[in-house]
């Protein structure tokens, strides 16, 4: 179960990272993108998404070759009373998928914030015509996540 959960986590992490890079390139969110040219964002994002799906379905292979499959949720609800126990495999249930999906998404977001902030640390927000009032993801068009957080903290002190 843990192996499948980790494989699923890695799959979603890679796919989310790729989607974030594609969207950042397409919608010109320069503070989220790892690259200065959108083309590299598309290439990296596509490779991450396609690579994540290919790896999960070809290498990790989430379909156990068993007659029966159960989830942790099934065990909790129905116990091990099923008569076909001899040929049984564990799969991820909907609830488990949601938990690992959200975990992987949060990790992908944090990784995106960290890498883009490091790579784009030299963006100078004040010199690039940033609207002081821009909030939320809109602000990440011209500054990195950590620059935006710093700006918010500075505003509060003032």
């Amino acid at each position: 179960m843990l192996k499948l959960a980790l494989e699923y986590f890695l799959f979603i992490f890679l796919a989310s990272l790729g989607v974030l890079q594609i969207v950042a390139s397409y919608d010109n969110l320069r503070g989220l993108s790892f690259f200065s040219r959108p083309t590299w964002g598309y290439i990296f994002g596509s490779l991450a998404v396609v690579g994540g799906f290919s790896w999960f379905y070809i290498v990790a292979n989430p379909h156990p070759e068993v007659a029966y499959a159960i989830t942790f949720g099934d065990i909790f609800h129905y116990g091990w009373s099923n008569p076909k126990l001899a040929d049984i495999g564990l799969i991820m249930g909907e609830g488990e998928c949601v938990v690992f999906f959200l975990l992987a998404l949060v990790c992908a977001l944090l990784t995106t914030f960290l890498i883009s902030s490091m790579v784009k640390s030299k963006i100078a927000p004040s010199q690039r015509g940033v609207h002081e009032g821009s909030v939320g993801l809109e602000a990440l068009r011209e500054m990195t996540f950590f620059q935006a957080v710093r700006r918010s903290l500075r505003k509060r002190k003032e």
């Binding site: 699923y8 799959f11 979603i12 796919a15 989310s16 989607v19 974030l20 594609i22 969207v23 950042a24 397409y26 919608d27 969110l29 989220l32 998404v49 799906f53 999960f56 379905y57 989430p62 379909h63 799969i91 991820m92 249930g93 909907e94 998928c97 999906f101 998404l105 939320g136 993801l137 809109e138």
Partner: peptide, 26 residues
């Protein structure tokens, strides 16, 4: 299977959340 369609749909939702061209579209 238990993963493919849901993952694609969830990734579409992520792209909708992050991607926008204007404040009204966001």
């Amino acid at each position: 299977d238990d993963y493919l369609i849901f993952t694609i749909m969830a990734l579409i939702l992520i792209s909708l959340w992050v991607g926008f061209r204007s404040a009204s579209q966001r």
